[in-house]
Amino acid sequence: MIKSLKAAIVLFILLSVLTGVIYPAVVTGLAQLLFSQQANGSLINDSSGKVTGSRLIGQSFSSPGHFWGRPSATGPFPNNAGASSGSNLGPTNPALIEAVKTRIQALKDADPDNKAPIPVDLITSSGSGLDPHISPAAAEYQINRVAKAHNVKPEMIRALIDANIEDRQWGFIGEPRVNVLTLNLALDALH
């Protein structure tokens, strides 16, 4: 009994050091050595070297001249990368339907001529509240509004989208998507 108590305590401490100190330290060391960009949050720098965001963290956009991303349910403001959260609204919750109606209205107000059905990912909140992507369909839907705001031809905007589409990984894993932040940075670079 005493012997197994000693074994339990000593082995617990040793395994804790091994898996809770040495293992994460080794992974951190190798990660910083091999993949320092990714290990530190995939941050994007502008031409002057200033950090403008993370490639993997969606930001909130609501001006007509930018592409809008997935709605976000984080608090106290959308896309708060310090406190990730989904909406957790159930499919039959009236609050979900109300939220969707408000988002549809905002999109229609910003682009009254657009009568196309709205891609579902553009009016439903993402799981993390930080989704950096929208579907190519959701980007397509916003072309006219963005083109008008920038006073350029829609084809030009479409070409920008095409340049920012990430295909399924290895051709078949996941879904095709557009990174909203890099797309908007490319838009801003037009001027």
Partner: peptide, 11 residues
Amino acid sequence: QSGGNMEGKET
């Protein structure tokens, strides 16, 4: 687009 019930899902 993948469509479907996208509330709470990632693109």
